[in-house]
Nucleic acid binder design. Structure first.
Lengths: 198, 198
DNA sequence: CACGTTATTCATCACATGATGAAATGTGGC
DNA sequence: GCCACATTTCATCATGTGATGAATAACGTG
């Protein structure tokens, strides 16, 4: 009986194995973090030998950064948030955050980034990048006073929201409709950005 | 020359090696999380063979829960926060949170808990416990409406604050004086607890 | 002082991980 | 059809992990 098991070498057809591996990697890194994700696990889930993973992506860390390729270009979204001036910037920020995190395509890399931010390795990389790439430009475009303080306050609320809604999936936050969240958080964020500071 | 290296068996004197191991374990679990912390690493840092760790604490997971032994008794602090009624409960909550997290004694176990909450294993355990042990009783004592929603909102802000100030150590949040933080966050928390909900 | 108990290390297991190099198999151009 | 090349697996290394059991040394009680 000629078994179907592919024994060795190249398989027939032209399956995009590289993309399959990358997809699995994104998933795992996002859901379990860097340390808890193993190259072998990714390989198995992708129906592939672990050596192939190394062949395509090099080291595990290389694969990680490859899986982080963001779907969101900061230079593209910052103007959208900033346009319109100080009024309503809180709402636009929240709305943008939710739309990005509610889209699976862009969520996975963000989750991986978020997770890695709290693991011992990458440390300051993520918050720093986030602050400089998004919140920094926004605050600059709006000409806020004490931008560092305001940006950090906003970040503290947004990080908490993301952590509970998307990472820990706490109810009723996880299932709350976007409009409710916007209505709830927009005033707070707006206050952090443009209100008086003690 | 009689070297000082202890070769085998029990060492002279009565050093509390068990406590030393536990201290190191608390530190490591808090700073690196469960997965990234190794029994051998703890043993080495405590100047001890790894077998001794197992001798005292059993499995690695046992050691972990042993290191979580909280310094804070919820039943003790909840009345303090709730006493005084709705007015000023936001400020009392923030003040309590900061005092607990600014004390190294109580911070380490909390950090370990927090970290484990975002690793794949413990999952819902921590937020659930936190909500039920602290925020739940508080909201009940205050007779709030829609307690789940309000409690989650508060948690989202507090988790973000803790994540940035104590875990990621983002400035200027990390070095901000307590009074400033109280003044900044108390109104928001108060609003989440007692203000109108959309 | 003898003896059981406790504290401590050594040697070792079984296993999982990341990584590499050689071999096998298909695809495409000439 | 042949040959360079890309794709895929196998076999293997070195390392690190959690864990166990036997051996040794100090302590405490009789």
């Amino acid at each position: 009986m000629s078994t179907t098991a592919p024994r060795r070498g190249r398989r027939p057809g032209s399956p995009d194995t590289r993309a399959a591996i990358l997809a699995v990697a994104r998933q795992r890194f996002a859901q379990q973090g860097y340390a808890a994700t193993s190259v072998r696990g990714i390989a198995t889930a992708a129906g592939v030998d672990s050596a192939l993973v190394h062949h395509y992506f090099g080291t595990k860390e290389d694969l990680f950064v490859a899986s982080l390729e963001l779907r969101v270009d900061p230079r593209e979204i910052v103007p959208v948030v900033a346009a319109g001036g100080r009024d309503g910037v809180g709402e636009r920020l929240i709305r943008l955050l939710l739309s990005v995190w509610d889209d699976e395509e862009s969520r996975l890399p963000l989750m991986a980034l978020m997770r890695s931010a709290f693991e011992p390795e990458g440390k300051a990389l993520v918050p720093d990048a986030f602050g400089r790439l998004i919140l920094g430009p926004v605050s600059e475009a709006l000409e806020l006073d004490q931008p560092e303080r305001r940006v950090t306050l906003v970040a503290s609320q947004l990080v908490g929201l993301v952590a509970l809604r998307y990472i820990a999936r706490i109810e009723p936050l996880a299932s709350a409709p976007v409009e409710t969240l916007v209505a709830t958080y927009a005033p707070v964020v707006q206050g952090y950005l443009t209100g008086p500071l003690p």
